[in-house]
Design a protein around this nucleic acid. Structure first.
Lengths: 346, 346
DNA sequence: CTTTGTTCCGTAAACGTTTACGATACTTGC
DNA sequence: GCAAGTATCGTAAACGTTTACGGAACAAAG
């Protein structure tokens, strides 16, 4: 059943059918009703391929996630919430979400070339941005609407969204200092994702503001996994002068860290203060409960959906691009893992 | 840059270009080389919309996940691995994965109608199948290639993949019985997903095989979330005659259950035996470590990709459909939570 | 030289839409 | 009664491919 069949059945031209279904003005109310009724009856809806070809737009938005381990995506589980939020918005304007996973080095760019050159998507979200990300230059040059999830330092202006690493770093450090801590370590990413750098610099600044120094040996870089967190614990315990507090850049790490502490009967919040990062399903269930930063990944995904559609529509309308830049705010929720005052402060 | 531009530039007809790039036989080797080189040079690749229209196939495969809570997808985090595996296969044959989240009742069917009627995807994976799932009848009637992730009892023959609930139930119960347990509870799904029923029946059968009875009060149905697990713990502790062992149908529950136990200083594996379900990133990090069933969700996703493509290609070729049915095997990995022999058995 | 076969390529139709344009009929204003 | 305006609809082109078909060039066989 295509538009011609429906036209024949209704004794109406295909042009009118199309206009009726697309809500154009110049079609009689009565006719429109008939068309819509018949379409429903026969389960007719315009073929997306024909529509795409004619309109030069596919209705698809891509989301490209980079995975480090060989295409193993478990570590990227939190993206499911982002997908959910984004898809929720896209659905509301009749668009769809296509997801891509690329391994970090090899084929990520090739993969992107493919979907861009073949015009599979109207726009793209890329994540896990590196400090200088080749993908950004490529997309910008091709005038593809895109948003980078994660800042980077490419020269070309573009839209991006990032978490508030400065804010979280400041709040975390200030909080720990207010409890009396002066010897504070941080866990960062061993990956080349840009936010590792940002987080470290933000912590450094926050420490400086409090008259403290974050020396290189206090920055523990590990993979953002449970095992990475476990390693952080090991390294922490091996230090000659053990820090009294630690701030993490990732909550998955907290799980491993807790287990390492448990192995040596160290209690977070009592023997050592711990501040986690983004709200994760586990964070709130850890005992002692973990201080962390609230964030709605669903809303964040929704934001991405809304703004990539905005970019796509602006491009279609020929409007000059207005780039979106956003730091996503996160509220600290203090919990048992960092409540006790540290000796030396009233 | 489209095929006509490239043709003009090379002084070759568009037909030849197309044949050259699609690896058809009747094109001179020299010509083919020239075409490929030029395409690479200009960054030309055939426009997918044109291709889709002509071939009647979009190269897209849909994956529809149902969410119960209002579009909140966090609970479906494990799907990210399935997506990864599936996309990995699809990518290898030039296809893409589009994901859909539908809230359980309202718009799930409408959402599906949309992508089917508009011919957005060539095939579809549906998950969270209910005992009698309307979506299955709809897709079967429309002759859409699809695979249900989860068995159901619809009359119409179709392809499906499901976890080995019978095997896991048998292994879990046999294992607990071999440790000397006779008073065993199980945690099941309060949702109307079909595998809740299957799991319960399988456990019942396994108990019967061991001369035991799984009475209704021993089946604790709760949402498959951390909180659901916590509730299971509460209900377990409230029982007059407390079971000495419990088998779970979901690992997320284990987290909540552990925390409830921790609240009352009950140690899994010592005071009560616990058997988890699918391998999850947390399971292996719980202390005491949790007995669970190994599964590679990545491989499972790959399987889905491979077989949905098979169905799609069979349909395109006009071959009569060969439905795929598969029970995904899972190996039990015994850990601390169920190692100790129970009193009353040597 | 004719016939047959092979290799390679161009032509044109088709896929299912949307939309610019023009045509018709009817209304309105004078 | 005529001009101008409005409401509604049909026609046909265009989007970018793929592919069936036929034709040209050439080689091999007789």
């Amino acid at each position: 059943m295509n538009i011609h069949d429906l036209a024949k059945h209704l004794n109406i031209s295909i042009g009118t059918i199309s206009r009726a279904l697309n809500g154009k003005a110049d079609v009689n109310a009565e006719t429109r009703k008939r068309v819509i009724k018949a379409a429903q009856e026969f389960g007719y809806a315009p073929n997306q391929s024909g529509r795409s070809l004619r309109q030069g737009t596919t209705g698809l938005v891509g989301f490209m996630v980079l995975t480090n381990r060989d295409r193993e995506t478990r570590g990227e589980a939190f993206f499911i919430s982002v997908f959910g939020g984004m898809q929720s918005y896209l659905y509301s304007c009749g668009r769809d979400l296509v997801v891509h996973f690329g391994s970090k080095d090899e084929d990520a760019l090739a993969h992107m070339r493919r979907i861009v050159e073949r015009r599979i998507v109207d726009g793209l979200i890329i994540s896990n941005t590196t400090r200088i990300d080749k993908r950004i230059d490529y997309l910008a040059k091709g005038k593809v609407p895109f948003i980078a999830f994660g800042r980077s330092e490419n020269a070309v202006p573009h839209s991006w969204l990032d978490l508030d690493f400065e804010g979280t770093a400041t709040k975390a450090i200030d909080h720990l200092v207010s409890l009396g801590h002066t010897h504070i370590a941080i866990a960062s990413a061993s990956d080349d994702v840009n936010y590792g750098h940002i987080w470290e610099e933000a912590c450094q600044a926050a420490m400086a503001k409090n008259g403290l120094r974050l020396t290189e040996d206090l920055i523990l870089r590990e993979p953002l996994t449970e095992f990475g967190g476990y390693r952080v614990g090991e390294r922490l315990l091996a230090m000659a002068q053990r820090p009294t507090a630690i701030a993490l850049v990732d909550n998955t790490m907290a799980i491993g860290l807790y287990h390492k502490f448990q192995d040596v009967r160290l209690v977070p919040g009592k023997d050592i203060a711990v501040v986690g990062f983004d709200e994760s399903p586990n964070g709130e269930f850890l005992r002692p409960s973990l201080t962390q930063f609230k964030i709605s990944l669903h809303e964040l995904g929704w934001w991405l959906g809304k703004h990539i559609v905005d970019l796509i529509e602006a491009k279609a309308a020929g409007t000059p691009v207005r780039h979106h830049r956003k730091i996503w705010p996160m509220d600290m929720v203090v919990a048992e893992s960092s409540m006790k005052e540290h000796r030396g402060k009233a």
